[in-house]
Amino acid sequence: MVVAVAWTALLGAALAWECWCRVARPRWLGVSDLCLTLARHPVGRLLLIVVWAFVGWHLFARYTIPA
């Protein structure tokens, strides 16, 4: 339970941080900046697409609803 709350807090923090980075534009980078930098290189772009595809299959084709 504690770890599930920790996961929720981490996901919330990640989302809040990204939103803040996009609105306030601080000197720190958001994940979209990191992805754009990674996407400059063909291998980085391929890696992003592979990760995106893996997340899609894992979330929407291979999920298990707990009993």
Partner: peptide, 14 residues
């Protein structure tokens, strides 16, 4: 392209 410079210092929160 993002003009932001990526460094450990700028990316540490993430």
């Amino acid at each position: 392209r993002s003009s932001a410079l990526v460094s450990l210092r700028s990316a540490w929160p993430w």
